[in-house]
């Protein structure tokens, strides 16, 4: 695992008894009270997991359930305000962390951010351009053109039955490609766990970006299918 930068604190002060507690703890080892949520640390350490991209979903779920029970605001209902707040904050952070970590792509995107790679947001494009393979662009363009033609045919009153069939024919290769991408992402995740190399992360970032095209295309197909079904 990559080492943490030295300036990041590793201890948190317990607001109940003033003792120092390691960041990975949720409850003070001295007084056993719930600790306020630290601004440091990440989703992986919160679950007591190493910063790895492959994880056992059952193990993650088990930890999620255990922690949700321990943090549950009901237990702190009559307690001091600081503990009530800590329980709320820890519960809500836990939910966010679980939502991200349980999804392969979201987990990988999150890790890219932790490792200092630019986010996958549109605004970042100008600063950090990724070269999309020309062959993929051509395919995406052709897929888009086909969908455009289907939409135009629908708008000019072509019989819907044939268009639905044509739309499903267009969907099949995209779904296939998405599956391919899924495997590629999984392979790169395994590779990162093994080598923790920057090059692997960058390949992963490109792969995740390319997925946006496929996700967009499938969303367009779903919209078109809905229009065909409703009219």
């Amino acid at each position: 695992m990559t080492s943490e930068p030295t300036k990041t604190p590793t201890m948190i002060e317990c607001h109940s008894c003033g003792a120092g507690a390691p960041l990975r703890e949720h409850f003070c080892p001295q007084c056993t009270n719930i600790l306020q949520l630290s601004r440091h640390g990440d989703y992986f350490s919160y679950f007591g997991l190493p910063r790895q991209l492959q994880l056992d979903p059952q193990e993650l779920e088990k930890r999620f359930r255990d922690l949700s029970r321990q943090f549950h605001p009901d237990f702190f209902y009559n307690g001091p305000a600081t503990l009530k707040l800590a329980s709320l904050e820890r519960s809500s952070y836990l939910n966010d962390a679980y939502r991200v970590l349980k999804n392969t792509a979201a987990r990988a995107e999150y890790l890219l951010g932790l490792e200092g790679l630019s986010p996958l947001k549109a605004e970042a494009t100008a600063a950090s351009k990724v070269a999309v393979p020309a062959s993929l662009l051509e395919e995406v363009f052709a897929f888009n053109e086909e969908l455009d033609e289907i939409r135009e045919a629908r708008e000019s009153g072509a019989p819907h039955g044939a268009l639905v069939e044509r739309l499903e024919r267009a969907r099949a290769p995209i779904v296939l490609k998405q599956d391919e991408h899924e495997h590629q992402v999984e392979a790169l995740c395994a590779q990162w766990d093994a080598d923790h190399s920057r090059a692997t992360l960058e390949a992963l970032r490109e792969c995740l970006l390319e997925r946006h095209y496929l996700t967009n295309l499938l969303a367009t197909i779903d919209r078109e299918a809905a229009s065909l079904a409703s009219a």
Binding site: L120, K121, A122, A124, T125, V130, V132, A134, L137, E138, V140, F141, N144, L209, E210, H212, Y213, T215, N216, L217
Partner: peptide
Amino acid sequence: GLVGAPECGDV
């Protein structure tokens, strides 16, 4: 020229 912005899925 065929270009794309994968962040938003534009071509």
